[in-house]
Simulated scan of single mutants.
Amino acid sequence: MKVTLIWIGKTVEPWLQAGIDEYTGRLKHYLPFEIKEIASVKNAKNLDESQLKQKEGELILSALQPGDHLVLLDENGKQPSSREFSTIIDKHQHGMVKRLVFVIGGAYGFSDAVYAAANSKMSLSRMTFSHQMVRVIFTEQLYRAMTILKGEPYHHD
Rank of each mutant, 00 (worst) to 15 (best):
K150W: 07
P66D: 11
E34C: 08
D68A: 08
Q141G: 03
L72D: 06
E49K: 15
K53S: 06
H69R: 15
Q93F: 13
G25V: 01
K98M: 04
W7Q: 00
A116T: 04
G9H: 10
A118W: 09
R144P: 12
V12D: 12
D68Q: 03
I8D: 03
E140N: 04
K91E: 14
D48S: 03
M96D: 13
L149R: 11
P66H: 01
L149E: 05
I8A: 07
I137K: 08
L59N: 15
Q54E: 15
L149M: 14
P153V: 05
R26A: 08
E152Y: 03
Y115G: 01
H94R: 13
E75V: 06
E37A: 13
K121F: 09
L142P: 09
T87G: 08
N43H: 14
M1G: 07
G9N: 01
P80V: 11
N46E: 15
G57K: 09
V3F: 06
S120M: 12
D68M: 05
Q51Y: 00
V136P: 09
Y23K: 08
P14K: 15
G57H: 05
M122W: 14
A18K: 15
K121D: 00
Y23W: 13
M127G: 04
L52G: 12
E49V: 13
V103D: 04
G25Q: 07
I20E: 11
L72N: 09
R99L: 03
R83M: 09
D157L: 12
Y30I: 07
K28F: 00
F102Y: 08
R99H: 03
R26N: 08
V114F: 02
K98F: 02
R99P: 03
T11E: 09
